[in-house]
Nucleic acid binder design. Structure first.
Lengths: 258, 258
DNA sequence: ACAGGTATGTATGTTGGACATTTATTGGAA
DNA sequence: TTCCAATAAATGTCCAACATACATACCTGT
């Protein structure tokens, strides 16, 4: 039995991810800023009631994410944001869950999506198999069945699955894996926009248009439909969209293997 | 920098990466195939002479890469290739170092690069600062000074730095981080093509053209120059390039947030 | 008084063993 | 034959001790 050590503070003992979560939260809240040192191992052990081994595992997770660096015999220092491994799914998950005011990274990720997702839609329209269409269609039907619900959780989940399924339909390993990385960000953007959007039916129509284009093997139409979907999201989040300079010829793409 | 950047130096005696390296090598060689079980912890301890904690850390690295899954009380099973975390720099590093016959993943990554790098070049031409140009130029000069050397190591290193510097010049977090992921693959492709290419001077001219386009803020020219560079590489590696269907309008891109 | 090397303390890194938990298998009883 | 309990083996967790690295403080010599 413990003498009510951690009672006053948070519920920090049961889950494996909770300690890392809490540290991340404090870092993103600005309590520990880049260059600062977080508490020592033994101090965390005493404060959290976890074994040193467990604490070291959690800190190791932060190291893997490039969030802190551990200096032997000295301490654990928070690294600059630019050093964080943004493409680590765990990191994007942390950021999307705890980075309320940290909009910069969100905007950069949205910028990235606005650049690539039209192309992903094109590739999906060229390469999607019947099985891919099933996944896309199931996600869409989930969106349609729940797009007027009070609780948007179901709809948001299907919305994310819809986008991820399109990444998968490219049948390219890199794009498929990127969907894992972007999934938390997509979820955040989707949940934001779906709570603020004025006309959920309009968004649903855009998704339907995109799905049909992929089904009918119309890459050109898929390209523009994807832009329409994203413009909707960007508008709901008040993010600027500016056109890029224009290449006079067409881009190339390597053939898909197998 | 990513922690795995220094892992490329393969002094694999008692280095921390050696055990994981060896396991990966055996997996990629087909000795342990997806679904198979690798030896037990204690067996590895006896065989390698390392402590159980160290062995567990190495196995944990493989788990982080999605390469194996550990079943409590049963064993460690190799996962399907599609489950591997291709966007983990450590994983790409392993694959590029040990996956001799495994060309599929290499091709998929090259396919990805062929799709995105022209766009990256465009963005770099729009956003590159003077400091970015310094990095690009230094890399190019290194290529020029060593492009006739017997040992291509120096030239290859600068070639990789050249491409990475362009990713950085986009000033978008996601693209910058992607360069870390792609770095090992770029290095492999570069070293292959540079040993097989017939006319190294021609490749150098293409790089020069790309650099100038970025410097002169000519996104259109940068786009085509990047294609020329990649076509060179693809041709040297006998990889097909097929054009994509063509959108009738132009893609969009979100504004960069400082 | 100042410079430089050394001693020391603190925090992280590593090791080995003991214990707990999970899983598949084996053996026995209805 | 079927179902349940005991067992064996492997992974997961914890603890205590030791080794190493870093920075500070001290101490000596010029």
């Amino acid at each position: 039995m413990f003498p009510s050590d951690t009672a006053a503070t948070e519920t920090c003992m049961n889950d494996t991810a909770s300690l890392a979560d809490q540290l991340i939260k404090e870092i993103l809240d600005g309590r520990y800023q880049p260059g600062d040192f977080i508490p020592k191992e033994l101090e965390i052990c005493r404060h959290s009631g976890l074994s040193r081994n467990a604490v070291r595992r959690h800190l190791g997770a932060l190291v893997n994410g490039g969030i802190i660096e551990r200096i032997s015999g000295y301490g654990s220092r928070v690294r600059e944001f630019s050093q964080w491994h943004i493409l680590d799914p765990a990191v994007t998950d942390w950021i999307t869950r705890f980075a309320g005011p940290h909009l910069e990274i969100q905007r950069e990720i949205l910028s990235f999506r606005l650049t690539v997702e039209p192309w992903v839609a094109m590739m999906a329209a060229s390469s999607a198999t019947a099985r891919d269409l099933v996944a896309i269609e199931e996600a869409f039907e989930g969106m349609r069945d729940h797009h007027l619900d009070e609780d948007t959780a179901q709809h948001d989940h299907c919305d994310v699955s819809f986008h991820v399924a399109i990444y998968y339909a490219t049948h390219n390993i890199v794009w498929s894996q990127l969907s894992h990385v972007l999934r938390p960000s997509i979820h955040l953007l989707v949940s934001h926009s779906n709570t603020r959007t004025l006309d959920p039916t309009h968004s649903l129509q855009n998704h339907h248009r995109l799905m049909d284009a992929i089904r009918m093997r119309q890459p050109d139409e898929a390209y523009h439909a994807a832009i329409a979907v994203l413009e909707d999201t960007a508008r709901a989040l008040n993010v600027d969209i500016t056109p890029m300079p224009t290449p006079t010829h067409l881009p190339l793409n390597a053939s898909h293997v197998s």
